[in-house]
Amino acid sequence: MKNTLILSSSPHIKSPETIPTIMFQVCLALLPAIFVGIYSFGARAAWIILLAIVSAVAFEAAAQKVMGRPISINDGSACVTGILLALNLPPTVPWWLVIIGSFFAIIIGKQIYGGLGHNPFNPALVGRVVLLISFPAQMTLWAFPSHPLFAHVTDTLSGATPLGWIKTHLMTHATLPTTLPFNMLQAFIGQTGGCIGEISALALLIGAAFLLWKKIIPWIIPVSFIATVFFITGTFWIINPEHYLNPVFHVLSGGLLLGAFFMATDMVTNPVTKVGMLIFGIGCGLLTSVIRLFGGYPEGVSFAILLMNATTPLLDRWTRPRVFGEVPHK
């Protein structure tokens, strides 16, 4: 028994929460979406997710080795990035695209800034957007959920995501058809085309509820993000329902829930103040709506979050909370 006393300054107790426990819980929260992705798209989805995780972790380790920094792959952040990247890819992508995505996510999105905590943009979204811009054909080749459960899904959807289908349809038609090739229930439980992780709103909401309950993520960002999208798309829908999609579809599809609960809430890249978070969420919602309704891309969540990431330092500076006992300057 050593008889020495340890010295350090107060406080002498600390909460059990660490970076790895946070990352682990985020992974746990993504399990329902992973499960639905694999269930719907088969072994191929599992293979993409696994490849994304392994390559993300490997790039992280390699980058740190090259830069002579301590290897910190045990903190779980590269694993989360890998999962999020995979969940944002269509199930049809070739394997090498996954590796390129991981490279950009980890090396360009994160490690060149100094690693976890220093990256201004969400790494997984950096990877995804690089792929989306550079490989548009591969990145928009959708597949049906291949499980027999979804055999009823008709050809009219031709594997497209609901929002993609709408965008294409509106290029050749003036108005939306009276009956859509997908319904709300399908969009809710995940019987539409889409990226591996975005198809089931239900699975994402289960994970989100877990993160909110564990207080891993703040509620302000996802709620303001989703509410803004709902409000704006809903306004246009009320004005002209023949041309604009029901806002419920906007909320349930196109990766909004995945983005709002799991990407916009990336703590490194969003503001630390409550007001900053509110503006951040509203900004994400505004940009997403504008891109979806008027932009060239059918879905705008990734671009919206990345653009708002860039405003984070300013938002933090402008929204410094009132200090206890502070009298506003006259």
Binding site: H12, L116, T269, P271, T273, V323, F324
Partner: peptide, 25 residues
Amino acid sequence: EVGEYHPHTCIRCGRCVTVCPMGLL
């Protein structure tokens, strides 16, 4: 019960901002 801690870069989670009883950052 005495942990040894190796400080990491701030991950900007904002928990300190939430708990500060003086409203500081």
